[in-house]
Design a protein around this nucleic acid. Structure first.
Lengths: 158, 158
DNA sequence: CAAAATTCAATTGCACGCAAATTAATTTTG
DNA sequence: CAAAATTAATTTGCGTGCAATTGAATTTTG
């Protein structure tokens, strides 16, 4: 038996503990972020996924629903009503692409543009709440990106 | 300028990019886990949060709704209907505590107990899909636990 | 070029997740 | 001991998140 344990090895009883699950650690961290963001976003009447859409649009304005979905990892079933609420709140506008009427182009309004400067404040707030340095944050981020990529790479082809 | 960057430093434009957000990395990883679990749990008619409840009960049977909520980090508003569905599926039973009628005690049924052995298979499947060794998984897990603790430790007293 | 296939957004149905209100039971305290 | 406060679970309302369906527009292809 080599000293390099893999998931193919025998799994002890203990491994089924909540605290021993990586998935649960990720699940809990995601909820913790959500709770941390809530008070910061409430000021603007935004939810966290709505904020993600704005982040995407600040990065690249005028995207189709599909394109936004690819950026954030959400489908139109989630985005359609979400974008309608963002529009009702005055942060984005939506209109059919005249050159391809199937598509809807989402654009930041002036109000949506202006919010970007405030977003730095939100970022600072979360940065503090997370309690880790930029370097630490970057390391965790990269590790999680790898993990996500691996998980998304398809059902169990080892 | 020292070489130790913190979140109090000036934040460049680039920091508002989706890919640069730790919260988004966690958010994406959580969704990726969900997707990875789905086919494994569908066999048993379970959702991922329902699976978490069973994990908690395999670890310690006969808990109140409140106690389960503390373990998983969910409130009764989420758990009440979820537990009702778990009961309808035959995995748990619920009954009022005779010594304190406010509380409801949740217990694994035989079917719920039996599922525990199958759970090792689920664990193996996810372990493979995550593509990381037990040691790597443990490191990420510990890092995320710290992050979660920090985020939950309260709104920005810094 | 017209029928079939594809693409995109919206809609529907179901299950979280959370805040706030409700109800019932227990504990505190005046 | 009775009124007030607290506690536990349920219910309600809203916003995701996802699968599946629908409907309109475009592209492919026979």
């Amino acid at each position: 038996m080599a000293n390099k344990a893999t998931h193919s090895d025998i799994i002890p009883e203990e491994a089924l503990t909540l605290g021993k699950q990586l998935c649960f650690a990720v699940y809990s961290a995601a909820h913790a972020f959500n709770r941390a963001y809530k008070p910061l976003l409430d000021r603007f009447g935004l939810t966290y996924p709505q904020y993600l859409v704005l982040l995407a649009l600040w990065q690249q304005d005028e995207m189709t629903v599909k394109r936004i979905g690819e950026e954030i990892g959400l489908d139109s079933g989630t985005l359609s009503p979400l974008l309608k609420r963002l529009e009702a709140a005055g942060y984005v506008g939506r209109q059919r692409d005249p050159s391809d009427e199937r598509q809807v182009i989402v654009r930041l309004t002036d109000k949506g543009q202006e919010l970007k400067s405030e977003a730095f404040g939100i970022l600072m707030g979360i940065g503090k709440a997370s309690g880790c340095s930029l370097k630490e944050a970057e390391e965790i981020r990269e590790t999680l990106h790898q993990l996500t990529r691996q998980l998304n790479s398809g059902p169990g082809e080892d």
